[in-house]
Amino acid sequence: MADVAWIESVLSGAVQAGTVYLLASLGEVYAERSGILNLGLEGMMILGVAVSFIFTNALGHGAALLVTMLVGGLIALILAFMAVSLRLNQIVVGLALTLFGLGLSGFITSAEIRKGILLSLNPNLSEAALVTQQAPKLPNIAIPVLSDIPLIGEPLFNQNILVYLSYILAIVMWFVLFRTRFGLSLRSVGENPAMADAMGVNVYLMRYIATVIGGMLGALAGAYLFIGYQPFWQEGMTQGRGFISLALVILATWSPLRAILGAYLFGGVEVLQFRLQLLGVGAQTPQFLLMLPYLVTIATLTLLSFEGVKKRIGVPAALATPYSRE
């Protein structure tokens, strides 16, 4: 069965399913590089789904994407304030924000509230638009020439705009992180905040910026899941994808470029588990494939427990540690 069309179709599915993880983990790479562990990612993602659902129906895709990122950034500000300024336990605050996001997303999408928000944004909406649980999906845009490349052209270059944005973000964010002064400061803040502070880097500001970027991209991942992938709103529809993205950051060893590979690996497993079921491979235990990405993640974690590896890869040493000047 492994003909060209089959490979193209599987790769295309892997890219589509993987983009959710890619967007979320890119932001999380920045947050963790600065020393902030954002366990609220799942909550920011589900809020991103809810906000993009409402705003797409009221004002269209463009407004929805902007507002979604704004909301994600605002929620991340709460995390930054609590974790950076108040120096609270990041794990507790993060988990609380996940619960908050799940609750708030359910609240703003409950029938009456949603109707109110939609009408206040756009009084001309039809009755059907007020009650529907779906929204128009982003169209695929085939890039001329590139999309004609055999095997990878169709999967990589016939996707929607958010997928293209994720490519650009991954490259730009890698460049900024490893090739600019700003990136060096960001990494130093997550590595040794006291030293960075002594060198004149504003530790608090850097951590705020990185956390907010993380929240914005987390919410954008939610918006992609909805208008870019499967446009049906249901409470809790992210189904743990925020937490999977956290695991992916480890697998990618905190590098935006490696996150691309990791994301498509996770996406690929999501696609292959169903393809292989139909091909009769491991049909009696289809759950087996599901655990593979986590096995790889655990293996990565184990590898990272060796000091030498840790140093070479650059695990943020001050991850989840609050910084105080005194």
Binding site: G13, V20, Q239, L278, P286
Partner: peptide, 24 residues
């Protein structure tokens, strides 16, 4: 042909399962 989700509800996975049945 049957594709098992091992979940009562997951729009993302359901999409992949349905697409697989059509394409595969």
């Amino acid at each position: 042909y049957v594709n098992w989700l091992f979940s009562w509800f997951d729009p993302g996975k359901t999409r992949t399962a349905a697409v697989s049945l059509i394409e595969e």
